[in-house]
Amino acid sequence: MTYIPSLDMSTFVDIILLAFLLLSALAVVIMRHLFSVVMVGGVYSLLSAAFFVNLDAVDVAFTEAAVGAGVSTVLMLGALMLTARREKPVTSQHSRLPLLAVLVTGAALIYATFDMPAFGDPGSPANSYVGMDYMERTPHEIDVPNVVTAVLASYRGFDTLGEVVVVFAAGLGVLVLLGMGFTGGTAPGKDEEDQA
């Protein structure tokens, strides 16, 4: 555990990143132009990915950057083509129930954090049972410096393989259903020949 240098710096970075996250979330709420909202959403994902890196959860951060900033921005832009450019103004009467739902959910989530062990607590469940076993065995059993990678790619290799197969099959299914534009009779190449 070589964590000694500049713990204060890490807290400082956390505070700034969370402030930026709050800023961009407020901007998403205030903005009415939907394309800008999608762009701010991408920045929100990048910020949370940086925040996860600062918390040492690099694998989560990488997923956040790939899915949040990459894929979901593209999906949102695709959805944007099917809808209006601007959000309609919401009357204050309509916004009461959603606001209540958001406040209750937020309060419940904050209440749930009281039960969580402190960050880096050696007595927490994640650090006391099977986790320590992996920490001890990984350096001499598997030649991978990152323990999370060793667990995902070696100890739970078949599990990861199954996940990859499922995701691949889902992607193939979506491509077959949506057609990608060049299945059936309306391929762009045929159009070109007809015109010529």
Binding site: V74, L77, L178, M180, G181, P188, E192
Partner: peptide, 11 residues
């Protein structure tokens, strides 16, 4: 995005 992907051929 669909046309952008399928218009690779020549145009």
């Amino acid at each position: 995005f669909q046309m952008a992907m399928s218009s690779v051929r020549g145009r």
